[in-house]
């Protein structure tokens, strides 16, 4: 009996390790994509926050634990390779991942339409983060200018990315659930 329990635990641990590796690779891939490709070919003059969309999808499809942990990882990763200075994203992304995972758990059906309100919430959060970063990075802040030049373009391209990324993430999370 104890052997069976130990075997089951080992299986669960191996599963968790594989799960973590795959999600980590996904996060690294998305982070690299964001800082190399999309930061170069700026759609509408802004870089979409692919990481927040990925965390949203992971939380939406895989739950609050995966959402929370991947949020911390994503925030730290993107801060580490893509910016410097005050670091706030691990906390923000963790809260997003955890809370969305928690509330999405209560959804009867996880469809594209039920995903969109969460995306809107995340976009609002992203907007707040951008405004906050702009406020601490610039000495004098012209809120209208920040809104027009940074926040709105970023909001728009992140919304587009969030709408599109749902489908590959649906496949990825489906594959995770099936194989692991």
């Amino acid at each position: 009996m104890s052997k069976m329990i130990l075997g089951h635990r080992a299986q669960t641990r191996a599963r968790s390790v594989r799960y973590t590796i795959l999600v980590s690779l996904l996060l690294v891939f998305v982070a690299v994509l964001q800082v190399t490709f999309f930061s170069r070919f700026r759609l509408l003059g802004a870089v979409p926050d692919l990481m927040i969309c990925t965390v949203l999808c992971l939380a939406f499809f895989c739950g609050r634990y995966v959402g929370g942990v991947s949020g911390i990882g994503a925030g730290f990763l993107i801060e580490a390779i893509g910016s410097h200075g005050i670091s706030l994203l691990p906390l923000c992304y963790f809260l997003i991942g955890y809370l969305i995972g928690h509330y999405a758990r209560g959804s009867v059906r996880r469809s594209y339409l039920s995903y969109l309100p969460y995306l809107a919430t995340v976009l609002f959060f992203r907007m707040a983060i951008t405004v906050f970063y702009a406020c601490i990075n610039y000495e004098t802040v012209n809120l209208l200018q920040i809104l027009l030049q940074s926040v709105l373009p970023e909001l728009l391209v992140t919304a587009i990315a969030g709408c599109v990324i749902y489908f590959p993430m649906l496949l990825f999370c489906g594959m995770l659930e099936k194989k692991l």
């Binding site: 949020g71 911390i72 925030g75 200075g85 906390l91 963790f94």
Partner: peptide, 25 residues
């Protein structure tokens, strides 16, 4: 929700990951 052990641990980790790099920076 906020009494959840997992949540509290993760929150602490996230705060550390925010505070420590920011302090160093």
């Amino acid at each position: 929700l906020f009494k959840n052990k997992f949540f509290i641990i993760c929150l602490c980790v996230a705060v550390v990951l925010c505070v420590v790099p920011s302090t160093f920076a």
